[in-house]
Design a protein around this nucleic acid. Sequence first.
RNA 1: GGUGGGUUACUCAAGUGGCCAACGAGGGCGGAUUGUAAAUCCGCUGACUACGUCUUCGAAGGUUCGAAUCCUUCACCCACCA
Length: 399
Amino acid sequence: MVNVALEEIGRGTAEIIDIERIEKLVTKYYEDGTTYTVKAGFDPTAPDLHLGHTVLLQKLATFQKFGGRVQFLIGDFTAMIGDPTGKSATRKVLTKEDIVKNITSYTEQAFKILDESKTTIVYNNDWLEKLGADGMLQLASNLTVARMLERDDFSKRYASNTPIAVSEFMYPLLQGYDSVHLRSDIEIGGTDQKFNLLMGRQLQKAYEIKKQQAVLMMPILEGLDGVNKMSKSLGNYIGVTEEPKNIYGKLLSISDELMWRYYELLSEKSLNEIAQLKEDVASRTVHPKTAKENLALEITTRFYNEELATLAKEEFNSVFKAKKLPTDMAEFEMEDGIWICQALVDAGLEPSTSQARRDVKQNAVSIDQEKISDDKLNLTMGEYIIQVGKKRFAKLKVV
RNA sequence: GGUGGGUUACUCAAGUGGCCAACGAGGGCGGAUUGUAAAUCCGCUGACUACGUCUUCGAAGGUUCGAAUCCUUCACCCACCA
């Protein structure tokens, strides 16, 4: 039983530091039911969770199955600094209300995956605020600049003359201090967090906590483009609250190569099953599209249910395979004689009449399934279905 | 505090008086092909009922018939020296 647990825990991980510790904790749980804590930090700036986050959440859920209690840490204090990602150093300051609102929707989404009864939500503002200047200095004394510059992105930025704010140096320290305060047994995070996660171990030692946390890192999930990491700002993400048909559709649009990655990190299928499937696709017993459909169905089901997921699949097939119209389209009422380009803008299908004009000329626009090419067209009374490209539809009522 | 360099569209990055709505690359969008996959090929990529007009090259002024380009001031960023 312990072996099964450990295998599940190890699945898909990028790296585990101090695996012995994890083995001991899990073994102990099976011996006498002693639970242990698993910490994971989340940034409350972006209230929308996407599949990239769920990789981590699923791992947490796995731990919950095997005796772990999750410390769901909201980094409301650290959010004010911003993790040194090398992107914009300046960050929008969040109000307390914003944070509360974000967190509510955040946890709501997270509990689609996590077991709420085995989760404790903690806020690092609670203890970091009280740390004070002296506490801060004491904390900072644990770290040398040279050590800090070992961190990959710091050294790169330093080498390429990109500015590094001193406050950014504090980020890993504070995150590490969270582990001291919480006395976490295990912390999990993405591979990009390695430095910060290790800082937790180092600081726990400095603050004389007997056992340092084990660290488990998950790979970063690539976004829909298959190159960059999935993130909202890059627009290559699938949000967990998106509509079933969008989740399904987006998953189906990923490349075949990326599909295997998603299978590994997101699917519930066992690694053996996936290997088998891969073989079947390679030997052409299974069409790659079928494999992708199954993945899309599985993920969509996870956030909704089988019925809605199946519906999404049917809708998708009817719209894109059979070129039928989607069942639900936004509807608009317009005045008689409206110029087609203006109508496209008003319906939100185009950002400007200039763009609309270009698209019409490029045969991208159709009315009632008929391509049009006259960019000076005016619509007369009646009802129309207008479409731009393959994905954008709207229903127009001209009166 | 001193010296030098920089700030151009979604991003990177050319352009140093008229040929500039601004080269090129990436991204994005559209078309063909397809499995709404990838790859490939082609087109588009400031706004405006539009072969013309208007607004854009950090900000504000100025020189000029004419400025992204020259001058002045300001803001921000970077490097080196202290």
